[in-house]
Structure formats: structure tokens, C-alpha cells
């Protein structure tokens, strides 16, 4: 499977709010992070949830965010980060 993004790319999580079974956490929508790893490809859980058993296979990315980019008033350490896994349909170039 060819991946749209490479390790080190800056990506923005889509700022979209579709109804139903969605695997992109709210707190990351619209936020910019960096692709830390490509973690294989898996069938799209947002289709699997509705009984589509031959759902599209999508690349899965591990995206690392600085906490201060996720939360404007973050109170922890300056180097703190969060890594979230996203399927490719949730990411745009940043």
C-alpha cells in the first residue's frame, strides 16, 4: 500500500465532526503533529463498525503532538507529548 505521508511529515488532523463511529479523538481535531511512524495498514474501522467487512485498507500513522500544541494552557513539562494513532482518511498535509 502506498502511503500519502512519510515519517517526519507535518500533518493536520481534519477538523470534521461526522456522526457515528469515529476513531479520531475530538481533542486532536484541527491540531498539527508530526508523523512518528507508519504502523501498517488496517481495514477502516469506521466502515467495519457498520458491518462492511471488506472495508478499505488504510495506512495507520502514529502522530506525535506537543502537549502545548494540543492545550493552550498546558501546565506540565515543556517537552511533554502525546502520540495518537490515525488512519490516513483523518490526516491532511500541514
Amino acid at each position: 500500500m502506498s502511503e500519502r505521508f512519510s515519517v517526519g511529515d507535518r500533518v493536520r488532523v481534519r477538523r470534521a465532526y461526522p456522526p457515528g463511529h469515529v476513531r479520531a479523538p475530538y481533542f486532536t481535531r484541527g491540531k498539527v503533529g508530526e508523523v512518528q511512524a507508519i504502523a501498517g495498514s488496517y481495514r477502516n474501522p469506521e466502515q467495519l463498525a457498520y458491518g462492511i467487512t471488506d472495508a478499505d485498507r488504510l495506512p495507520l500513522y502514529r502522530v506525535i503532538f506537543r502537549q502545548s500544541d494540543l492545550w493552550a494552557d498546558y501546565q506540565g513539562g515543556p517537552k511533554d507529548t502525546t502520540v495518537v494513532d490515525f488512519y490516513e482518511n483523518w490526516l491532511d498535509p500541514a
Binding site: R23, A24, P25, A39, G40, Y42, P45, L60, I64, G76, G77, P78, K79, D80, T81, T82, V83, V84, D85, F86, Y87
Partner: peptide
């Protein structure tokens, strides 16, 4: 308790891993 200069890295298992 960890020092401030240690990076606390949270992993959110949202997917297949």
C-alpha cells in the same frame, strides 16, 4: 513524580495497536 525536563509521552491507543 517526574522532573519537568523528562518528556512525559502519552500514547492514545485509538486504533489497531
Amino acid at each position: 513524580t517526574l522532573p519537568d525536563d523528562v518528556e512525559v509521552r502519552v500514547h492514545d491507543s485509538t486504533a489497531d495497536l
